[in-house]
Computed example of a mutant assay.
Amino acid sequence: MSVLHRLWSLMPRSARREALFGAAALLAPRLARPEPEGRGALVVAGYHSAPTGLGVGARRMLAAMRADGLEPIAADLTGPHRQGPPGPPIVVPDGPGTIILHVNGPMLPWGLLTLGRRAVAGKRIIAYWAWELPALPQDWERGYAACHRIWAPSRFCAEVFARPGHPPPAVVPHPPPVPDPSARDRASFGLPPGAFVALSLFDATSSLARKNPLGAIETHRRAFGDSPEHLLVLKTHGTDHAGPAWAEVAAVAAARPNVRVIAADLSRRDLWALTACADVLVSLHRAEGYGLAMAEAMALGRPVVATGWSGNTDFMQGPGCHPIPWTLVPARDPQGTYDMPAARWAEPDLDAAAAALRRIAADPARGRPAPVRLPAPDYRGALGWPA
């Protein structure tokens, strides 16, 4: 390890973040002014190779635009932004057009810097942002100077991103998920055929306090005790990098005889299959920018028991949806992903969630609502292009 690398590693995480993003903001290409019309090459830039929510959003937008007759170009920033293994080389045509970046505010100048001055010159820049709290960290302010417009996946996010002097954010939801399960069944996941299975999906490295698997475990205990006929499956990934927060969840889960943990990597089709094997999806989150797992469960015709606050309220409506009451409390995140002591998020009512689980388990008809097809986003309208 070089001396500079050693000194860098000794700096506090916040100082490293500020140094990196501050330097990127100084060096990033400046936007064309006034805002270009945007016709020309259409580029979807983001973490196309990453398993994160931003990565899923970028991939789905790319596929949906192509299905809609548009011809977007993919620019994969995964490797340069250290979000996963490098993808294919980034090739963006020079000249006019529109670049949509699935890169959140603090890293948006870095995204422009990665694309390069010639790629950015003359193009309209649209930031596709997602965030989970009703306030933004200060370092997001850099992102406003690095884009002409902002798209958000939900009304909750759009309200957070609104700023005087900047065009109002447009709500452009994620494309409706299209189920594509593999042939795997319950037996292949080690689940008994006759049990009532509740499923909770989350990334252990994102913020366990926000995803709240401890709330799901406690809700399941209040609903069913130690009944072997009622299982809770925690599907997660990234546990090797989640530290003490995951150790606490793992210990609580291990103490419950009817809680199973699946931490192995699964393909997208196997994740679809696992969701199809469940009787209900449980998401007692404290905040969501959108809620992809809930939308996917609804597309499969699975009931959803979820906190009735934040991004998922845009679409979590109708038969099979069980929004759980909540109260706002100070946001506390030991993992530091949401290090905003003054911000607040939702604390779900676990007794109400347990009652919803018991109702679904007791009534098979209630547990199998019709699959829900969410509305498709109007990309041409959001871009201002004729149909």
Rank of each mutant, 00 (worst) to 15 (best):
L7E: 06
G289R: 05
R222I: 01
I100H: 03
A183D: 15
L357N: 06
G301Q: 10
P106I: 09
A362S: 15
T98I: 05
S206F: 14
L77M: 10
A223E: 04
G238R: 05
T52I: 14
A253S: 11
A355L: 13
R256S: 15
P371E: 09
Y144W: 15
E37C: 06
W326A: 03
S2H: 12
D351T: 15
D76N: 09
L281H: 12
A158G: 08
P375W: 05
P330F: 06
M340Y: 04
R380A: 15
R155G: 15
G165N: 07
A293I: 00
R142M: 14
P175N: 04
R117I: 00
I73R: 08
A251M: 05
F21W: 13
A58E: 03
D94R: 12
D203G: 08
L42Q: 11
T114F: 00
G215H: 01
P93D: 02
P192T: 12
G84S: 08
P153L: 06
A41W: 06
G243P: 05
D94I: 00
V261K: 11
H322S: 07
T219W: 00
G95E: 05
A158F: 02
W131D: 07
L374K: 08
F161C: 07
W385L: 15
S200E: 09
G40Y: 07
P85T: 12
E141N: 13
E229I: 04
L201E: 08
L136T: 11
W385D: 11
T307A: 00
W309A: 13
H148Y: 11
A342G: 04
L70H: 03
C277Y: 07
V304G: 02
W272P: 03
G55I: 06
N104T: 14
H5K: 15
A361G: 11
W110Q: 13
P213W: 03
A45L: 01
I90T: 03
R118W: 00
C277D: 10
M316T: 02
F202Y: 14
R117Q: 12
G225D: 08
R13H: 11
L374Q: 08
G111V: 03
S182V: 08
G336L: 11
A15I: 12
G53K: 09
D76G: 04
I360V: 14
H166C: 11
P109H: 06
L191N: 13
R163I: 10
P137R: 13
L284R: 02
L7S: 12
N212L: 00
D363C: 13
A352V: 01
A28W: 01
V178I: 13
P334S: 10
R39T: 14
V92N: 00
A32P: 00
A158T: 07
A365G: 12
K211Q: 08
A23C: 13
P334K: 09
H230C: 15
P341E: 11
R66D: 02
G194C: 09
V197M: 13
L284T: 03
G225R: 05
G301H: 10
L62H: 11
S200D: 12
P213F: 05
P213D: 03
P348D: 02
A23R: 14
R286A: 00
T98P: 03
P153T: 09
G308P: 01
G40F: 06
Y128D: 06
N312A: 13
L232F: 10
D378V: 02
S49W: 00
T98M: 05
P34K: 12
A15L: 15
E347T: 02
W272I: 03
I100A: 07
G225H: 05
G225N: 08
A152Y: 01
P34S: 12
P371V: 06
A198W: 01
L70D: 10
